[in-house]
Simulated assay, not measured.
Amino acid sequence: MADEHSARPKDFADSAVHVDVKEYYGERVKKTSDLKTNACVAPAQPIPAFVRQALTKVHPEVTDRYYGCGLVVPECLEGTRILDLGSGSGRDCYMLSQLVGEKGHVTGIDMTENQLEVARTYVDHHMQEFGYKKPNVSFVQGYIEALTEAGLEKNSFDIIISNCVVNLSPDKRRVLAEAYSVLKDGGELYFSDIYSSQRLTEEIKNHKVLWGECFGGALWWKDLLSLAEEVGFTAPRLVTANFVTVDNKELEDVLGDFKFVSATYRLFKLPKGDIKCGQVIYNGSITGAENSFQFDCRYTFKAGEVVEVDRDVASILTHSRFAEDFTFQPSGDSCGPCGVKPTAAVVDPFELALPPKKPRPGSATGGCCSTRSATCCK
């Protein structure tokens, strides 16, 4: 993982990888159909109706230049400030600008001028389409490894999203560190990306087309866990995972036995402190999730039901934008549900991507243990 920890000069500049990626997405790939694999267009989950409606209002040229690998629409967005890492042509920015409302704001940052030109061309068009008096979307040219150098203020964003872009960076640790820096306390990094079943070979990492197609720079999923901890984030919570196929014989031969998933994770920047586990009741107040709220692959909160949560989730719900959507009550357990430590909640995305098996005890309300069962899921 030497490339993940490499030091860089203060004034960030193009690496060979950045030059190749700019050329790939600025010149070689003009529309979605130009991609050689399905990695950058693989859907991670069904699209909710209100999101589909928002997408219908995005200009066709913006949508045609979309290369994401998942759905990056976290919940509870009204009035928030969002940053989109690697915003490209701006599809996600324009979709999210409708969800944050006129009082919220969405900033997109991308290093590829050709993509930004498309995004900026349609700012006025979309504001008129949405009925906004002034733009709530802006675009910045810069690197996702150097957010503050691009003029973005520290502790200024409620949410950061990224859609199949982090894998394109040669320095993932710096990407996470910069994201942590510009997030507010209680803020969230919610992102989809491509992950590998093991650390990639040098041959794969040096393959220009595989880099551009989101495979060559894919992290081994376990390395994401360690990098997030080093930077200061909470343990990554896995939301969804789906297998990604290459469907290109030449590239398949280079990749060999390596497997890949498109996975969505949520990471939070929280104040330090000892938070005990407890019981929570979802109030049903989140737009689009009035009946139930899927926090991650382990916890789905149904409105009005009592759910026992581990310390990590209790801390997140207490300190994040979700605090007003839950009622909290202590459980008297000092070590988490059924004695489960937060690290035991780590989920292998490759296992989650497999066809579903018979439901495990306690999974109905979505915790390792629910209030309906005293059996732990192991």
Rank of each mutant, 00 (worst) to 15 (best):
K31T: 14
L77C: 06
Y25D: 05
D193R: 03
T264W: 05
K57N: 11
A345L: 14
F260A: 02
S370E: 06
E230A: 09
G104L: 01
C164F: 06
F268V: 11
Y282H: 04
F12H: 08
K276S: 15
A39L: 08
E213I: 05
D110C: 04
A7P: 00
T107F: 02
H5D: 11
V209N: 06
G336V: 05
S87V: 02
G101Q: 04
P48D: 03
V17I: 15
K134S: 15
D3Y: 10
A49P: 11
R372E: 15
N283C: 11
A13P: 01
P342E: 11
H59Q: 09
L96G: 00
D257W: 03
E324V: 04
R120G: 08
A54F: 05
A2S: 15
H319Q: 13
R91N: 12
I47H: 13
S162C: 07
C377S: 13
P356D: 11
T264L: 12
R173W: 09
A49T: 12
G104V: 05
V280N: 04
T234I: 09
N206D: 11
K357N: 12
K154D: 13
V118K: 07
C297S: 14
K30S: 14
Y24W: 12
T287K: 14
T343F: 14
L255C: 11
G336T: 07
V246C: 12
C164R: 00
P355G: 10
Y67F: 15
K22Q: 08
Y143S: 09
T112G: 02
S192L: 04
K184D: 01
L270T: 09
Q141V: 11
S33C: 12
G273P: 08
K302N: 10
V340Y: 05
I159W: 00
D84N: 07
E78N: 13
S196C: 07
L317V: 03
R120F: 01
E178R: 02
G131S: 12
Q141C: 09
V261P: 02
E27R: 14
S97K: 03
T287H: 15
H207I: 10
A228W: 08
I286C: 09
S334C: 10
S370G: 15
K259Y: 02
A374I: 07
G104M: 05
D171S: 13
G217F: 00
R360I: 01
T245M: 15
P359V: 03
F322K: 01
Y180K: 02
S320V: 07
A345Q: 12
Q98W: 05
D333N: 13
A235F: 09
T365L: 14
F130G: 00
K30P: 04
D11Q: 13
V123P: 04
A353P: 08
N155P: 00
G68N: 03
S181V: 10
E202Y: 06
T112M: 07
P361A: 13
G362L: 04
L55N: 14
I161E: 00
K249D: 10
S226G: 12
P74E: 05
D257P: 06
D185G: 13
S262Q: 06
G187K: 00
I316W: 00
F322V: 03
A49H: 13
V175C: 07
E153S: 14
E153A: 15
Q98E: 13
P170K: 06
F157V: 04
K133W: 08
L189P: 01
D124L: 10
P361Q: 07
K30C: 12
V261I: 08
A2H: 15
V140K: 08
K30L: 15
